[in-house]
Nucleic acid binder design. Structure first.
Lengths: 385, 385
DNA sequence: GAATCGCTGTGTATCGATACACAGCTATCC
DNA sequence: GGATAGCTGTGTATCGATACACAGCGATTC
């Protein structure tokens, strides 16, 4: 006998009868305690206790009232990312703080990157959504729009009618690029995935042939210089404008802008694209970036995790930072300062809180501004003498 | 005009009419797609698309079906702890993995440590609960029992009728104690909070005067030896049996057992109690533990975070580890290995996954066992020559 | 060729609460 | 002293779906 008889749920009507009051009095005793007299409330509580009434059925309540008391969070990644990725975790902490302040539960919608994600969003019993960075063409965003619920998107994509919170990633990337590419001759970039396919690869930069929204399939091949010849047909170059992740796109553009500002050609920049935000993958890619005749002497990484991978690769190769290699990360995570890593500081926790407040409609001063603050933190990794 | 007209929700009946089918056909098209013909399903989908029907109302569905599709998680701490504490985060990652595998949403109940927590639990629209370590007398646990829903408690307290998952903390603490107290003369312990009051203090050990369940209020004063005299009335000693957190209680008992095994008296052990699981607070307390005539030469810390605080304090005091001080942590967090910290390894991620599977009733082999594996990882911090 | 079965579509009762409107009563106000 | 307002209690309609039972129909079985 594994126990737990499926004990039938006690209903509000039964409590009302036992307490000798009407159903509405019971309802008010729970939902609007000020609406009933102290005495009635006490009688209701007593009867509820006696019968083992667990309180109003949440489903019934939400059906009638239209509120669920849940804030939904959707990630553009697998659900576990909320707890595995340090940056996502900081963001979620801010969301959680606001939820706790307002007595709202925090519901993580179980996305996994598969086709069922849309259904998971549709089934979510929430009052509003917060969306963590995803791709422009992610159908999950359309599903959220279809619910008609308030939603706030962090990082991207922008959508008509949905609120949007993000830093000016392009401007920040320009600042990073100026810092890390100064005096460099063979710049490199360690990038987040370009699109939902999340393929990892290394290629030179390529400009989009026509409009800034040209489809990736038709993007020009890398404008290779001599060195990459002889290794078969070169893979298509990395076109910033073709990335469907707004954050990635803007950062690539910013790096390109900064390099162009030194008179450099984007097609000379080597770009390694990671499939995940992990130091180990970054280390492997960085090993390629830092070796051979094209070995980079400056790398802009889109995340501190990636930058730490670069540091490990550099150490194994006997390269000194910033002597042989200048390096920038992004996010100023806890490990950045000890590693002496120049990086972009932004408070993801604050951004999470702002997203949550906006979604819940409990704005604090400044929450209406779309853009959030960032700053370049200069450390030893770009302190080339 | 801030937009978003409160567009009325399209109902299933309207979709049915537009598609020329019955309401039930629409319901099946969503809930049991195999129950209707391909043609009917296509017509329903088309009509839904045309009318902007976002899918079945989750509240109505849950009211009728009795299922919510949510797994509730309750922490014995503030909600943000789920994202701020490294150990809690690992646990949550395991819970999230199982949720994602089964298409269940993960609902974090917004507890804050206040009296409203009980209501938050009662209002939670979930199918089952997972509870992260809390105190024996936490009313939240009673509220969970009252819902009649399946629930799994991780760490404690144990409750009749609720599943329970934990390591044998006492046995593990004995292993730790044997390791860290070997050859020690003035042992110390850095403990998690003893009870929900979470007061931080330092005192010597005290045994419970009568039964192992004696109320803390009547616990004996510290059996002080001479050194602590002259500083006013000594505070009550630390009685392991009086802690209302099962995990803390069992670990203190284990440390006591281990010290007793060397012929030592618990009353000679200095115990510092942290109010939070943070390295900075631990550092401050450790500074006291490691100075004065009673300065400890061996410290067992209940968490790696705390142990890292001890390391920092030791470094500032010019103490060498393990020369002047042996030290153990707990959990084998990412920072433990680089720091050379002897610790207890256990996979909180696996434990989270097991809790979630048990709560959802989707057991995997081995999930029925209450106890989980642990092992002592010996590193340099206890390698006294 | 009758019996049976699976597949598909339908109608109705029902899940358990809250919104709303109304009624009785007491205190307050000019 | 009549009007008004606030407080408290009640009854009914309703929120939007799903469980259940049943019916029609073609295919399968012996």
């Amino acid at each position: 006998m594994s126990g737990r008889a499926a004990r039938r749920r006690v209903t509000m009507a039964e409590v009302a009868r036992a307490a000798g009051v009407s159903v509405m009095t019971v309802s008010y005793a729970y939902g609007k305690p000020g609406r009933v007299s102290d005495e009635a409330r006490a009688r209701v509580r007593e009867a509820a206790e006696r019968l083992g009434y667990p309180g109003p059925h949440p489903g019934a309540r939400s059906l009638r009232s239209g509120r669920t008391g849940n804030l939904g969070v959707v990630l553009g990644e697998h659900l576990t990312y909320a707890f595995d990725d340090p940056q996502a975790t900081r963001f979620m902490s801010g969301v959680a703080q606001v939820c706790a302040d307002h007595g709202m539960a925090l519901t993580l919608v179980p996305v996994t990157g598969g086709p069922a994600d849309v259904d998971r969003v549709t089934e979510a019993a929430v009052d509003a959504f917060v969306v963590w960075t995803t791709a422009d063409d992610d159908p999950v965003v359309d599903a959220i729009v279809a619910t008609g619920l308030p939603a706030v998107i962090h990082g991207g994509p922008r959508r008509e009618g949905l609120s949007f919170v993000a830093a000016d990633d392009r401007a920040a990337a320009v600042a990073v690029g100026r810092e890390v590419f100064a005096g460099a001759r063979r710049p490199g970039v360690l990038s987040f995935p370009l699109d939902r396919a999340r393929v990892s690869r290394i290629a030179f930069g390529a400009s989009s042939p026509d409009s800034p929204t040209s489809p990736p399939a038709t993007s020009a091949s890398a404008s290779v210089d001599g060195a990459s010849s002889g290794t078969g047909p070169p893979p298509a170059g990395i076109d910033p404008d073709a990335s469907t992740f707004r954050v990635t796109r803007q950062r690539l553009r910013g790096y390109r802008d900064a390099w162009a500002g030194t008179g450099g050609d984007w097609a000379a920049v080597r770009v390694a694209v990671c499939s995940t935000n992990s130091a180990s993958e970054a280390e492997a890619l960085a090993a390629e970036l830092l070796t051979g005749p094209e070995a980079c002497d400056a790398v802009a990484a889109m995340g501190d995790e990636l930058a730490l991978g670069v540091l490990r690769a550099a150490a194994r190769l006997g390269l000194t930072v910033p002597g042989d290699l200048t390096l920038c990360g992004w996010d100023d995570s806890a490990a950045a300062a000890p590693a002496g890593l120049t990086t972009i500081a932004q408070s993801l926790r604050d951004q999470g809180a702002r997203c949550a407040r906006t979604a819940l409609g409990v704005l604090a001063p400044g929450d209406r501004d779309t853009e959030v603050a960032w700053s370049l933190v200069r450390r030893q990794s770009t302190a080339r003498s």
